[in-house]
């Protein structure tokens, strides 16, 4: 695909293939187009040419509302700034994607509960995000990103706002869980350490993608 902003190309003929369960690190200097690529992958932005397929569905062929539905089903997001919903408790935050999908309450509780345990946030299930530390919030965010068994998780600098200890925990979780649930992972990062949990690494430079390893 390719994408232009104004008159300057941000993505030039980028081509990428990801398998289920595969972890991919996306590195590169700021302004290289990583975020744009991530946004296109997540159906947030639309390439000028080319197509994006997730599990056989082409994102470029469907409109905004459909894209939202698709995001609901197939994509999970982990953000640099966590973006937990402030008025919901931890548990409710994690259950939310399921709520959107119309899952019955009992089932929701069960799934969310087990994931919360898995990310070691079970004991804070009723707390509000304002009471959590950065690491705790990100762990919830990860649980939320996975609770609906998406095809792919898009993580944009997930450790960008965390200290080293928390970062390590988060990365470990991402690695383990994506493997267990066979969810693909695209990890945009500056950090070498973060890139290492992935099996592949690609680098963006001036809108062009280069395989580094894997």
């Amino acid at each position: 695909m390719s994408r232009k902003y104004d008159l300057s190309p941000v993505l030039r003929d980028v081509s990428l293939r990801l398998f289920s369960g595969e972890r991919l690190a996306l590195t590169g200097p700021s302004g290289s187009g990583k975020t744009t690529l991530l946004n296109c992958l997540g159906g947030i932005d639309r390439p000028d040419s080319g197509s994006v397929l997730i599990g056989g569905e082409d994102l470029t062929r469907i409109d905004g509302e459909e894209l939202a539905m698709l995001r609901r089903r197939k994509i999970g997001n982990v953000f640099q700034f966590f973006h937990l919903l402030p008025t919901l408790s931890v548990r409710e935050n994690v259950e939310f994607p399921l709520l959107l999908l119309g899952v019955a309450p009992a089932q929701r509780r069960e799934r969310a509960g087990s994931l919360l345990e898995r990310v070691k946030m079970g004991h804070r299930a009723e707390a509000l995000p304002s009471r959590l530390s950065g690491g705790e919030m990100q762990r919830c965010a990860i649980a939320r990103a996975l609770v609906h068994s998406p095809r792919v998780i898009l993580a944009d600098e997930p450790t960008g706002n965390l200290d080293s200890v928390n970062s390590a925990n988060i990365l470990e979780l991402l690695q383990e869980l994506s493997g267990e649930m066979e969810t693909a992972l695209v990890l945009v990062t500056h950090s070498e350490e973060a890139a290492r949990i992935c099996q592949r690494e690609v680098r963006m430079r001036d809108g062009v993608l280069e395989e580094v390893r894997g």
Binding site: L85, T87, L99, L100, G102, V103, S149, M181
Partner: peptide, 27 residues
């Protein structure tokens, strides 16, 4: 950890109701 993928049974009204309950009223 293995969770089965989830079907989408979404409807606009239901989701709006969720938004109303969990956000508007709480605000």
């Amino acid at each position: 950890m293995n969770l089965k993928p989830v079907e989408d049974r979404g409807g606009t009204a239901r989701v709006s109701g969720v938004l109303l309950r969990q956000f508007t009223l709480r605000h």
